[in-house]
């Protein structure tokens, strides 16, 4: 077992809570500590995104180390878009040497969406192969090239899955594949369409995957009707039902944000009732200060001290 707090919480049978901290678009470490301060004590692990939406930000390794110094258990995200197998393995060794215990493997948003759309992408390996790579470094102590690793990176390996993307029929199989590659936990895309998520979980259980991998259900509080509409219309693979927007529209303007949080808390409660869901991943996009309140309202506070 790695030194990961998240791994201990999950293995201890606790319903886990993770959240997210997007590194700043600059070299200011204080932005990271400020965002971190909102989450302190309320989460078991915190994701540090890796140039999400292909926008250049402080590296996930550096921001994760800053959070580690604050006492967090960071979950370093790693995308396959920007680094080949040489750089990925090198950064994994570096991250482990700096005390990072969790890694989350992603293919990465296409660079077209970011601030450098004319960049060349890499995609030497895909997210499943990245999972395999980390497992090989850790468990077999061999680089992809076959040479021995002197000082294995001991990491808790995570991945992501989007139950709302197409083709739907292979989305549970895709998670099974990731588990077979060596992923130990998964965080899902933001869940707004609960019935569809339940259907996906049923398929996951049919394959027995929930017994092989810890499933953390992704939730996001909607700040405004505009945000919900944007996610519904413009974010690929996001499923925001019209009923959610209708509900937000049904409250006075000054209460929309509060209603968004209420929906998020209700979603967490629904997730806790689903067999095979081992925790929640709260993605409060540029709204980190609301995470503590959500965790408390969902009666998930205090977090287990391990």
């Amino acid at each position: 077992m790695s030194a990961s707090n998240l791994e201990k919480v999950l293995k201890g049978g606790n319903f886990a809570v993770t959240s997210e901290c997007g590194p700043p678009r600059g070299a200011d470490a204080e932005v990271v500590s400020k965002k971190g301060s909102y989450l302190k004590g309320y989460v078991d692990g915190v994701n540090v995104t890796d140039n999400q939406t292909s926008v250049v930000r402080m590296s996930s390794i550096a921001a994760a180390v800053l959070l580690k110094q604050m006492g967090f258990d960071p979950i370093m995200q790693m995308v396959c878009r920007d680094r080949n197998r040489i750089a990925l393995q090198s950064d994994l060794l570096g991250a482990a040497a700096l005390g990072l215990d969790n890694v989350l493997c992603l293919s990465g948003d296409h660079q077209k969406f970011g601030d450098h759309p004319t960049a060349k992408n890499v995609f030497d390996i895909d997210s499943m192969q990245l999972i395999q790579t980390i497992k090989q470094l850790r468990d077999e102590g061999r680089f992809l090239g076959g040479e021995e690793v002197k000082g294995r990176p001991d990491m808790f390996i995570g991945c992501a899955e989007n139950p709302f993307a197409d083709p739907f029929e292979i989305r549970a199989m895709r998670l099974a594949k990731k588990a077979a590659c060596g992923a130990q936990f998964v965080q899902t895309q933001c869940i707004f369409n609960v019935p569809k998520f339940e259907k996906w979980m049923e398929m996951v259980r049919d394959l027995g995957v929930h017994e092989k991998i810890y499933i953390l259900a992704g939730v996001t509080p909607c700040k405004s009707i505009g945000m919900a509409r944007y996610m519904q219309k413009s974010v690929p693979g996001m499923d925001v039902p019209e009923e959610l927007i209708t509900r937000l529209k049904g409250v006075p303007k000054e209460n929309v944000a509060e209603e968004g949080i209420k929906i998020c808390v209700e979603t967490i409660e629904q997730m806790r009732a689903i067999k095979g869901v081992a925790g929640v991943h709260i993605m409060a996009i540029e709204w980190e200060q609301k995470v503590a309140g959500i965790v408390e309202a969902a009666k998930l506070y205090p977090r287990p001290a391990i």
Binding site: S107, D109, H110, D126, S127, M128, Q129, A160, E161, N162, A165, D166, P167, I170, R174, K177, Q189, P236, G237
Partner: peptide, 8 residues
């Protein structure tokens, strides 16, 4: 090894 999360 399969589609990314952006296939819609």
């Amino acid at each position: 090894n399969g589609p990314c999360g952006g296939s819609h």
